[in-house]
Design a protein around this nucleic acid. Structure first.
Lengths: 346, 346
DNA sequence: GGACGTGACTTTAACGATAAAATCTCGCCA
DNA sequence: TGGCGAGATTTTATCGTTAAAGTCACGTCC
């Protein structure tokens, strides 16, 4: 009947105590006599009382919740990132909520609009589609750590993977195992932007330079981000008659598409064409054949990101006028090559 | 220097007006003279004023944000679900945030603790690991729509896929294309619980009954949820020497593991062993060979879910004493078989 | 020319929880 | 018996915003 939500005052009235005592009884923040506590709990249960977190947050100025903003929920890389972050934060008694930006500049900036930030103790922004200028323009005091491979303004903490080293490692492995014509699927012109694709393309180029060669321009294939893009890229190479005996796919997602296209064309992997990916997704060990890939140090990235976040939060809490206790850090996680069955052992 | 965040009062002081006028000027809710508005905007910009959403929410009692609680961020099914929901809500100018429950009963109940719900206008709970009793015990007025294959209390709106029909369709296809020994990977005893696995196992059994046969008990393989579980299940079947010429994997994720194990054992798909999955994930079209699977009507599920949520929200807003305008609905989305290359055409 | 409407703005009072300060109640000791 | 302190509980004020009611100046109309 009384469909309105009961408040602490209602519980207090029912239990014959003050609202403050209800608060103390339920949170245990200050001592309350056992008898009173029992009465309060009874009343709260009877009324179906539910704590209003919004009110608590307003008062406390904290939410114990961290937001992670990713471009897409349905990209496995971000799913794994979110899951890992969520586990770490849960261990610390904090919450993670994930928001999607859609990789559109406006949406990403909206998701990260200062107003929305205030709902969280901190924001982890996996930036794609924003330029350094977009971010540089923001003036906010909400703790922010950037994650990702874009060029980022130096004033924020930033965690990234070692794209260049990883790509170099991958490509070098292909060259060392006998491939001579290594296509890069998902590559980008080094002068275009400073994103992940560019860095990985640079690594691919450097691996060639290392062995005193240079990659043929027609082996650089630009693509979209998803599975079909990988498949289409290989189809294009094949139909163009481009000669290649290995593929470095800039992401594992693209690599899956690459494998599909090679299988459909009857090219044997790794005998005719070797393949290496990048990201070491959970599913990458289960492709046919199992994908050789670059592990970008997921765990280190997660740990470092949260360390930086705590640092920024602490800095903000301590009035942040506390001097250069520590400036923003820019961390690069170490990469590692995971050799599986899409490359030859010799 | 003044590192504290400016409030509306600060802006008001700076602009020489009252806080209320600042509110009106910035939101446009009530008219303000152009000159004043300009002055206010100027002051707000100068001070770097950011609206405090927590305070607004406390006052307004609405957040324009919907939460989706899923068991795992890193399971592609949930990622795709979240992405789809997020797109729909964004189109309506609302926000979606995703939380992870970890599929542990306690965490799921904590994530959906009534206290947390109040942060959102509504909650979509993708329940796994909760029993109907857990949910039945909750009395809350926060709009809630359940999503998933568990047995759910009837008093909540609920959207599910047609697991039985899908599994039956999949298995029937295997039998119709010449398979006689169809293993089910990830199956469950029908009497154990009323979850997704049980329903899909039931469909598998029914397809056999339909053709006047009965599945051999040793063809029912219980597994964990992830990729390696699918691979291990097939390895076990092979090492046990169990005869089988087809596999119905209860999820696409398991199916990917199944394909990996078959490839590693040198069984040809679909010639020696046919395979069908369930879920039609984005990546399922790119396995080698491309996976035949059951599409669970993703889009219908998303649309129905949001329709129900709006209904519940409206019901709650209208005082909900408004009588049986409409009781809780239980929607089952229609399934569809997507035939690709892991099954034979005849 | 006095009552009344209208637009622009201000004041007051919440929303619900809780920190900090004030009060109240005992039990205990000199 | 009076005083004191410790613990339990209440009171007061506040977090930042905004709905609702109040004030004020300036026209307008009969």
């Amino acid at each position: 009947m009384t469909s309105v939500k009961p408040t602490m005052s209602d519980v207090a009235r029912a239990a014959g105590v003050s609202a403050m005592t209800v608060s103390n009884a339920l949170t245990g923040r200050r001592p309350v006599s056992p008898a009173t506590r029992a009465r309060v709990e009874r009343a709260a249960a009877d009324l179906g009382y539910e704590l209003n977190l919004t009110a608590r947050h307003l008062r406390a100025g904290r939410t114990d919740t961290v937001a992670l903003v990713v471009p897409h929920f349905d990209h496995p890389y971000y799913g794994e990132l979110a899951a890992r972050m969520g586990r770490h934060l849960a261990d610390q008694g904090r919450h993670l909520v994930v928001e999607q930006s859609g990789a559109r500049r406006e949406a990403e900036l909206a998701a990260v609009a200062p107003a929305r930030w205030q709902l969280y103790d901190g924001v982890l922004l996996s930036a794609v589609g924003t330029t350094p200028d977009d971010l540089a323009g923001l003036h906010t005091s909400v703790p922010l750590v950037l994650l990702g491979e874009q060029q980022m303004p130096a004033r924020y903490d930033h965690v990234r993977m070692d794209n260049v080293a990883g790509a170099r490692l991958a490509t070098r492995h292909l060259l060392a195992t006998g491939s001579r014509r290594v296509a890069i699927v998902g590559g980008a012109d080094p002068d275009r932007d400073a994103g992940m694709r560019t860095a990985r393309t640079l690594g691919w180029t450097m691996a060639h330079t290392d062995t005193g060669t240079a990659p043929a321009p027609e082996l650089l294939v630009r693509t979209g981000p998803d599975l079909s893009a990988g498949r289409d890229a290989v189809r294009r190479l094949l139909s163009d008659g481009t000669d290649f005996d290995a593929v470095f796919a800039v992401t594992d997602t693209l690599a899956v598409g690459v494998l599909a296209a090679l299988a459909e064309a009857g090219r044997r992997v790794p005998d005719d064409v070797q393949v290496v990916g990048f990201d070491n997704l959970a599913s990458s060990g289960f492709t046919v054949p199992a994908l050789t890939t670059v592990d970008p140090g997921h765990e280190q990235m997660a740990v470092e990101t949260l360390r930086l976040l705590d640092q920024v939060v602490a800095r903000a809490a301590s009035g942040e006028a506390d001097g250069r206790s520590s400036g923003p850090e820019h961390v690069t996680a170490p990469v590692r090559l995971v050799v599986r069955a899409t490359t030859r052992s010799a």
